[in-house]
């Protein structure tokens, strides 16, 4: 992959280190009620794998690579789109309390 910055050796280790701590800190302070949506949300975020699969497919030089690349993009897109929809549906339902007990619309 042709990129202006090359990530090698220790630079990669530093990224691993910092990103791992970031993930740990973000989840560590989450109330239990959000565990399932967050699992689903983090599931969505690793859907970024689709861009890697896109690169692989665009650079496929043989039929076998094309087939595997196609499957990769298909699966990655499913991961990203499905993860997004499911997470959004769960989070949509988190709304604050109704005004006062008993004072409901019914």
């Amino acid at each position: 992959m042709d990129m202006s910055v090359t990530i090698t050796g220790f630079v990669a280790l530093y990224i691993f280190l910092l990103a791992a701590f970031a993930g740990y800190e973000i989840i560590g302070r989450v109330p239990a009620i959000l565990h399932t949506p967050l699992m689903s949300g983090s599931n969505f975020i690793h859907g970024i794998v689709v861009v890697g699969a896109m690169w692989a497919l665009l650079n496929a030089g043989s039929t076998l690579e094309q087939v595997i690349g196609f499957v990769g993009v298909l699966l990655g897109a499913g991961n990203a789109a499905g993860g997004y929809v499911v997470t959004e549906r769960m989070l949509e339902m988190f709304k604050p309390t109704n005004k006062a007990p008993g004072a409901d619309k019914e």
């Binding site: 990103a19 791992a20 993930g23 983090s42 599931n43 975020i45 690793h46 794998v49 890697g52």
Partner: peptide, 11 residues
């Protein structure tokens, strides 16, 4: 991919 993957891995 490195950052998103690692964050999800640790979280």
């Amino acid at each position: 991919m490195i950052i998103a993957g690692t964050v999800v891995g640790s979280a």
